[in-house]
């Protein structure tokens, strides 16, 4: 892995990035705990280990830009600015959740932030990203669509259809691949003919592509900034592959029998938060005291989210049939 790229000049920005990553980590750890206690149902896919990607990307995305994501999207939703309380309440299935308890962990939406959803069928968000970009282009709006997907999605037909059409129509999409090396339990080299460096597929569609260290928030931020600049010239989509690793299983149901613990140990050395802390302290962008302050702050935020979710009412049964049709 590359060393961390050059620090951003602005100290408060630096602190924001760190706080954001730490908030996601703490939120996910607490969500895991709540799942084990039976407070959260269904599937729960944790973003632990991948925080640098959502954080780096969202730190440079504009408010008018659209975001679509997959089912491991709590981190994207938090980094986009969604209220942790509203997300946690949705995980709890409560009336105060972002979808009133109708979507759950895999289907977070915040239309007011142009966060257009978590999609739980692998690859399903890619064609929709194309459509959002098509509308932006048709209306001559300066908007980019940020489409997150994982290495598992690149073997779906929808991925290829979407890459092709976005390129043919020169649409403003950033295809943001979070390559955590495993599609559920299958190692990427066993499932993708091109091997683990997936960004080469973009060549076939004449889409400019880059690979970045997904454990380095500044590298992700920089790559996204460059991609945004390029997309905003109207020259079509850009593809970014962020190399990363999920420290936990595919979902809470996953005993992680398919990979060696030594592999996880290696990747833990790349922990995006710990690495960033070291640099931040060394460069004196943050003091030990400030770090503790951030830690206490995110802890309090997540505790408040849990309390809010706990105390919120279940959805009224008479809302069952609401929102089937507009």
């Amino acid at each position: 892995m590359k060393v961390l790229s050059k620090p951003v000049a602005d100290k408060s920005k630096y602190m924001d990035l760190l706080r954001q990553m730490m908030l996601i980590r703490r939120f996910e750890e607490k969500a895991s705990e709540m799942y084990m206690r039976g407070k959260i149902g269904g599937f729960l896919h944790l973003y632990i280990g991948e925080e640098a990607i959502a954080t780096g990307v969202m730190s440079v995305l504009g408010p008018d830009d659209y975001v679509v994501s997959h089912y491991r999207e709590h981190g994207h939703a938090l980094a986009r600015g969604m209220d942790p309380k509203v997300i946690m309440a949705e995980l709890f299935g409560k009336a105060t959740g972002s979808s009133g308890g109708k979507g759950g962990s895999m289907h977070l939406f915040d239309a007011s932030r142009n966060f257009m959803g978590g999609y739980a069928i692998v690859g399903g968000q890619l064609p929709i990203a194309v459509g959002l970009a098509l509308a932006a282009k048709y209306r001559r709006e300066d908007r980019t669509v940020l489409c997150f997907f994982g290495d598992g999605a690149v073997n779906e037909g929808e991925f290829h259809e979407s890459m092709n059409l976005a390129s043919v129509w020169q649409l403003p999409v950033i295809f943001m691949l979070e390559n955590n090396l495993y599609g559920m339990g299958s190692y990427v080299e066993r499932t993708h003919a091109g091997g683990k460096d997936i960004y080469h597929v973009a060549d076939a569609y004449k889409i400019p592509a880059a690979q970045v260290d997904g454990m380095d928030v500044l590298a992700v931020r920089e790559a996204t900034e460059e991609a945004l600049k390029r997309v905003r010239t109207g020259s079509g989509p850009v593809f970014i592959e962020a190399m990363t690793y999920r420290f936990r299983g595919h979902s809470m149901a996953d005993p992680v029998a398919y990979r060696e613990s030594s592999e996880l140990d290696q990747w833990r050395k790349e922990d995006p938060i710990e690495k960033f802390k070291v640099v931040a302290l060394r460069e004196e962008f943050v003091t030990d005291d400030e770090l503790q302050g951030i830690e206490a702050g995110v802890q309090a935020t997540v505790e408040a989210a849990i309390r809010f979710a706990e105390e919120s009412p279940e959805p009224e049964l008479d809302t069952l049939h609401d929102n089937v049709y507009a």
Partner: peptide, 9 residues
């Protein structure tokens, strides 16, 4: 999408 988003979309 309309249902899963709680009517947002």
């Amino acid at each position: 999408l309309h249902y899963m988003s709680g009517g947002q979309v």
